[in-house]
Design a binder for these strands. Structure first.
Lengths: 270, 270
DNA sequence: TTTAAAGTTGCATATAATGCAACTGTTTTT
DNA sequence: AAAAACAGTTGCATTATATGCAACTTTAAA
């Protein structure tokens, strides 16, 4: 099944930032002869998975791909179960809420419900952000066991996105460890100035971290004194969701008899 | 390029309502031997376009497909240009706003910005609804020229979704004609009880209808006397968007010197 | 007008897809 | 509990299908 395999690798080039791609660009990127690429793309186009600009002949993602992709939310049990939960969190807190998963070396928002405060498009569904500059990313990394985490940090540059982005591997490592024990990460302006975020893990069947549930809060609406109750709320909802996903236990937040009941706040130093 | 072609046809089965599909179901639906289907699906899985349930072995849409699909919005010029417009409409009216296109014999919401009033999940991005029960659908049908419309009505059953759904082909035809001349469709509870909708066309390069821009309004928040100004606002924004998409002219609403300036309201009889 | 570049198509060749049937594993029936 | 039925995957020879080169067409630049 090599034909389909190379075809899908071409399609994956459209998952990146590039808006449109030409036959030549794709052929070069994939190190394949143009004739082959041309034929494959034509077939994707015929099936609606790619569209071709009439003028420039450049290809872009097609409606069939969009429609297929939007079924992910409906068929993925986690995402499906999470939608009402996110809604409720927005209702109760007034803040935009997201559900994020790992995807390669970035985090991907698979679900987002926006609150009344306007937030930059970067937080919309389908957007990707680096691990080290987001609370969701830190929660997901903390879910990897030490070995996996070390592998990540080893060959990764912690590029600064804003002046507040953590770039020191030691500080980063310590934050991840704190997140691992407290089950929460709080970041302030690390990926966009003036924007804070709180995230907690959602656990799956074998109590591994399968997603991060988080709030995005513009600083001017972020009341410091509410932090603890927001974290408690997130933990509460993440517990519900985790149990629904088959997790045996959710060891964070107050309702559980487990460890670290109230020190959650100390998790992610500003 | 027959291998890719059959492979994509399998993938398209996941665009439908079905949440998950088994190898056997797919093989039957596509009239292909199970061995072939099994191999193709395994390859889609290896590339992340499909995921397989550990227990049931059934397939569902994968994360790669989701990520690819979400790039549609970014690379499709219309959708990309429309996002800020929708945001502005929500800000100004307080109502949820959608952008919809034709997709087979259903309409598909490719963009949606939710207002403060809770609205049923059916209006979320990626959802499909029948033409005859939605204002967006009527606008899109009105954009087809008479021949195309007749072809549609001819072999189509106007199944009732609610008691208010239009099921009489003659009434339906008249509504489409009125929509064609007025450039607006207003429906009340035709696809869900207690929910009204207003939609106007967005025109493309050759002044054909490429999308429908619409509001979804729960009846209890729908102030009758605002109807005209809502329609005017939609027309105004749709004009901006149409010009951006290369339309030479936008013949609806007040700012244009064209025809039917103020009778918009008479468009879609309740 | 000439030259260059991008994209598509024809064709002989070899590679990769095919379907059958056998095999494994899981669920249902008696 | 054993047997049967069913769902899914894999081995293998056979042939259809994808392949790359080069010629060709089309669009853009000089």
């Amino acid at each position: 099944m090599k034909t389909l395999d190379t075809a899908l690798k071409l399609l994956k080039l459209f998952e990146t930032e590039e808006q449109t791609l030409s036959v030549t660009e794709i052929a070069e990127a994939a190190a394949l002869p143009k004739s082959k690429v041309s034929r494959l793309l034509a077939d994707f186009r015929a099936n609606g998975f790619l569209e071709q600009d009439e003028q420039t002949r450049r290809y872009r993602v097609g409606l069939a791909a969009f429609e297929l992709g939007s079924n992910y939310i409906k068929s993925q049990p986690l995402a499906h179960a999470a939608l009402p939960v996110l809604r409720q969190i927005v209702d109760r807190t007034g803040h935009s809420t997201t559900l994020s998963v790992m995807r390669g070396d970035l985090i991907l928002h698979i679900l987002a419900v926006e609150g009344p405060h306007y937030i930059d498009g970067r937080w919309r569904v389908g957007n990707r952000l680096p691990f080290h500059a987001t609370s969701a990313g830190k929660v997901l990394l903390a879910g990897l066991m030490p070995a996996g985490f070390e592998a990540f940090v080893a060959n990764r540059r912690l590029d600064p996105i804003t002046p507040s982005t953590v770039t020191d591997p030691e500080v980063f490592r310590r934050q991840i460890e704190e997140t691992r024990s407290s089950g929460v990460s709080l970041t302030r302006g690390e990926s966009a100035p003036g924007l804070s975020a709180i995230a907690v893990p959602v656990l799956g069947r074998s109590n591994d971290t399968v997603a991060a549930l988080g709030l995005i809060i513009p600083d001017r609406f972020f009341a410091e004194e509410e932090t603890d109750s927001l974290i408690a709320l997130l933990h509460e909802e993440a517990r519900t969701l985790s149990i629904k996903c088959g997790a045996a236990d959710y060891p964070f937040g107050s309702a559980s008899a487990s460890h670290t009941p109230a020190l959650a706040r100390s998790a992610a130093p500003v």
